[in-house]
């Protein structure tokens, strides 16, 4: 079957969206897990600072999340805009 240029572009955009979000989700997932693991350790060592440590963990995770959100944005751009 012959594939038209526009069709190929659309297919590539859909595949790109899946790969962008799929691969982009790996890093933040692992990184945020690592942050949370260390937060558990820190609370175990110093339970009195649980509030501060939870806040620190959440801020750190939010930053680590950013690349996941970039992936999501790129995936949505590929799906709906490009």
């Amino acid at each position: 079957m012959a594939i038209e240029g526009a069709e190929l572009v659309k297919a590539a955009a859909l595949l790109g969206a899946g790969l962008s979000m799929g691969l982009g989700a790996i890093g933040p997932g692992v990184g945020e897990g690592m942050a949370a693991a260390k937060a558990c350790e820190a609370i175990g060592q110093n339970p009195k600072e649980a509030g501060l440590l939870t806040r620190t963990m959440l801020v750190g995770q939010a930053v680590a999340e950013s690349t996941g959100i970039y992936s999501l944005v790129i995936a949505l751009l590929l799906l709906f805009v490009v």
């Binding site: 859909l14 595949l15 969206a17 899946g18 790969l19 979000m21 799929g22 691969l23 982009g24 989700a25 790996i26 890093g27 933040p28 997932g29 692992v30 990184g31 945020e32 897990g33 690592m34 949370a36 693991a37 260390k38 937060a39 558990c40 350790e41 995936a75």
Partner: peptide, 25 residues
Amino acid sequence: LSAGLCMGLGGIGPGIGNGMTAEGA
């Protein structure tokens, strides 16, 4: 096909990350 790949690849990182967290706890 891309829908399957996206969910498959996207599940790898959070699975490992959640495990790390549980290990620490």
